[in-house]
Design a protein around this nucleic acid. Structure first.
Lengths: 142, 142
DNA sequence: TTTAGTTGTAATGATAAATATTACAACAGA
DNA sequence: TCTGTTGTAATATTTATCATTACAACTAAA
């Protein structure tokens, strides 16, 4: 009853790239050791982040870099890069069409669920990688 | 990567009670046939709705009724009655504490995830059973 | 006080989703 | 050509969700 860890992992990945890609080659192995997530999972996420044009990865030689300025990447972008755009809440599969409630439950709830989802993603869209990196750098310096 | 169907089912249950409890005895079997969800699952949800003082159920003889006026029951209340209060987004389990990013990823994201969750539940708190029943009755009359 | 129908509850099973693992071909540069 | 890496498939493991079976406890009515 909650979202997967993909958003947290993808954000972690991008912060590692933002923080270290000028000094080191950021391989899936490197990211795997920072996140403790299997390197194949990381590679699949790197592919999705590439599809979303958030990073580019050098095949063969290896290493990933950001393709956009940090303030142009929001957590909403990251979410949609790595997760599918499903509805926020699931429904029971076969409500009884012969019952007035069963027949109308989707009509009643669909738009309201969508709305709840929308305000949540609006919040996520206000968070940029930029803000996260500034806060991270403060935490590191202490 | 989404919420379970518990909220939709629980809302369905309460609407069935609101709509029919004056005319018929609302048993778990009755609700099961309207939702097409297993009666034991329904009974467990009825228990949680009882704990939350949203309904009362007659043991032995059977039948459930609402204990509050419809405009005092929000979808936020229903959610918390039947779902656990987990975080909205999961995290990867063991980020590397020796990496500056791994060490700080929770500090960076926890409050932001909580905030996104909060605005979503604020939206759910604006939806009352009352509103749903009025809309449902309109749909039924057509 | 027995009967019938229902709830409360445990235990187990089935299904689906998330994550991990193994394996290897394709690639790029040294 | 060698080395390290990515891209990708296939499979396995783990976890969560939902369904099912079973039955004791309860309540009212016969």
């Amino acid at each position: 009853m909650q979202f997967s860890s993909k958003l947290a992992i993808a954000t972690h990945i991008l912060l590692v790239i933002a923080e270290f890609s000028d000094k080191e080659k950021i391989t899936s192995e490197f990211i795997s050791s920072s996140t403790n997530v299997n390197p194949v999972i990381i590679r699949n996420m790197l592919l999705k982040l590439q599809d979303a044009k958030i990073i580019q990865t050098k095949a063969g030689v290896g290493g990933s870099e950001l393709t956009k300025p940090l303030n142009k990447i929001t957590m909403r972008d990251i979410f949609y890069a790595v997760e599918e755009d499903k509805d926020l809440f699931k429904f029971h599969a076969n409500p009884n069409e012969d019952c007035p409630v069963g027949r109308n439950i989707h009509k009643l709830l669909d738009k309201r669920f969508d709305n709840a989802k929308e305000v949540m993603f609006d919040e996520l869209s206000k968070i940029t990688l930029d803000q996260l990196k500034i806060e991270l750098d403060k935490l590191i310096k202490k």
